[in-house]
């Protein structure tokens, strides 16, 4: 990274906030439950040494990635299907409208009963909650593909399947990606909730343990892991997107920012 005034500007606020947190925390001007950055780092180091951190990371990563992959795949397949086939659309639309606004975490007890306290119940509920935004985005993306592009493809003699794979999907891809990104955020929210309520290992479990045993440094250590996790996966998604959608991102705000 080149150091210029813009990148310095970007760092001023976070660094200042961290410094203020540390100093105010040490002199006792902050409530104890806010801990301090140094204590949080120490707590991270502590659970890294015992290995707890890696067990938790592995469990959470496994759940969120498998759940997210399943939910996204299902959302894309069913969403594209609903976009193309009116029959599929008429079946899923009312179902999705009915379920979409309910926080998916409320289904957790059912999933726990169905799949037990292990990985399966978390994966299932993450997949379930990830499905909806991806479905809605894919369905909508297909229906809003520019008619002219489809006409142009037919004009050039493309058969239906070619049009689907080579025109509909690429044309729908930008919107579809937005849905996937929302799905990813949902996945983390639900992961946390699921681990908080019914789990023996995981980042969420570390957080709830810290809260219960008044180890606020530990609690924040878990939160920090979540944040890093979420940030990295979102960045990865954006990197994949700008690779795949090179031509379509030209002139958009996002391309300019990058």
């Amino acid at each position: 990274m080149r150091i210029n005034s813009a990148s310095i500007q970007n760092w001023i606020l976070p660094v200042a906030a961290l410094a203020a947190w540390e100093i105010l925390g040490r002199v006792g001007m902050l409530p104890r439950y806010l801990s301090t950055p140094s204590a949080i780092l120490a707590a991270l180091w502590e659970i890294a040494l015992t290995g707890e951190l890696f067990v938790a990371l592995a469990a959470s990563l496994y759940r969120v990635s498998v759940g997210f992959a399943l939910g996204t795949a299902a959302g894309i397949v069913v969403g594209l299907g609903a976009g193309i086939l009116p029959g599929v659309r008429h079946f899923f639309d009312p179902l999705v409208s009915f379920l979409y606004s309910i926080p998916k975490v409320t289904f957790l007890p059912i999933f726990l009963l169905l799949f037990g306290l292990g990985h399966a119940s978390k994966i299932a509920i993450i997949a379930f909650s990830g499905f909806f935004p991806v479905f809605v985005a894919s369905r909508h993306a297909v229906l809003s593909v520019d008619k002219l592009l489809l006409w142009a493809a037919r004009n050039m003699g493309a058969p239906s399947w070619t049009i689907f794979f080579r025109v509909v999907i690429p044309a729908a891809a930008p919107q579809l990606f937005s849905g996937v990104r929302i799905g990813l955020a949902h996945a983390f929210v639900v992961l946390f909730a699921a681990e908080l309520i019914g789990s023996k290992v995981g980042l969420g479990t570390i957080i709830s343990y810290g809260e219960e045993w008044v180890r606020f440094d530990l609690m924040f250590a878990g939160i920090v892991c979540f944040a890093v996790f979420g940030f990295l996966s979102d960045r990865m998604l954006l990197a994949i997107r700008s690779r795949l959608l090179k031509g379509q991102m030209i002139g958009t705000e996002e391309e300019i920012v990058r």
Partner: peptide, 18 residues
């Protein structure tokens, strides 16, 4: 139905942006 015997250039742009 539409086919390559009648080549169309539309009033609005119809290139594939990707």
């Amino acid at each position: 139905p539409p086919g390559p015997d009648r080549g169309m250039m539309f009033q609005e742009l119809s290139l594939f942006p990707w």
